[in-house]
Design a protein around this nucleic acid. Structure first.
Lengths: 139, 139
DNA sequence: ATTGTTGTAACTATGATAGTTACGTAGGTG
DNA sequence: CACCTACGTAACTATCATAGTTACAACAAT
């Protein structure tokens, strides 16, 4: 994974979960916390809404979680904001005249896929609630 | 990880390990198997040599492994060709006026670091020999 | 009607990566 | 010794992904 979308997605959901005034949590406000542009935030919240992790209050104001923080895994957040993520990349178009070249992609594919699955399993067992508790413990 | 250096590094070492004529394994030849440029190969072999995974024969001809394939882990290869790799990226410069912004980097840092370590553990337990056996089983 | 906010398209800037050209260097061979 | 082959590396380029940015239509609430 090269991007920061999971990390920003978790940031957003943590803000939603910990806000005192969630009905006034708009993209402008969130962008100030992340220190980015409101459109970047809207792109992410838009994905999070499509994944049924958050929804707006009446009138598209603010944000609220659609599940309890202990029921939102980091994997769900990742899939919402970066559905095609891969931890590893394999070089393509190796020479099929060569035994190694012909088979390396499939061999590495299954090895890397195993590790990907293990990582996803780890993320599936980490919940937004865990992040929130850690954040709160620091302040 | 966004790059293909681990994948190419494994490809190179597999070629070295499986070659019938390792003294004539030059960057040109390897590049043909990977389907890339010889300089890309030389950059990688140069790193692999510095990490003491391979060395040239007398006269800088060809390549030979410096350890048995069962003693070369994929983690060593990764560290050799991409020493600063990180699976996850965290957005920087969050707003320290905000509780979440102030602490998110350290919270996510330790979570992601755990997963990074687990992945490295997995890679440490996968050996070049495992890759070779899988490659050979296909052909 | 006016206001505030979202969703999204379209474009830009930046940075990482692999590919490429070029060349100095080292070692072996005739 | 002169020649040859291959390596190591600097420097540059092309490509691509990402985040940032501008702009605007749509929508709901008042």
């Amino acid at each position: 994974m090269i991007n920061t979308r999971l990390s920003m997605g978790i940031h957003i959901l943590s803000l939603v979960a910990l806000s005192n005034d969630p009905e006034n949590l708009n993209s402008e406000w969130i962008a100030t916390s992340i220190n980015t542009n409101p459109v970047v935030v809207r792109r992410l919240t838009s994905s999070l809404k499509k994944a049924n992790l958050v929804k707006a209050y009446v009138g598209n104001r603010g944000l609220q979680l659609m599940k309890e923080p202990e029921d939102i895994s980091l994997l769900e957040i990742l899939k919402a904001v970066d559905p095609n993520n891969h931890l590893f990349h394999i070089h393509q178009n190796s020479n099929i005249q060569c035994t190694v070249g012909r088979n390396i992609e499939s061999t590495l594919g299954s090895i890397f896929n195993d590790i990907q699955k293990e990582t996803e399993w780890k993320l599936a067992n980490l919940k937004l609630d865990d992040v929130m508790r850690d954040l709160e413990s620091k302040n």
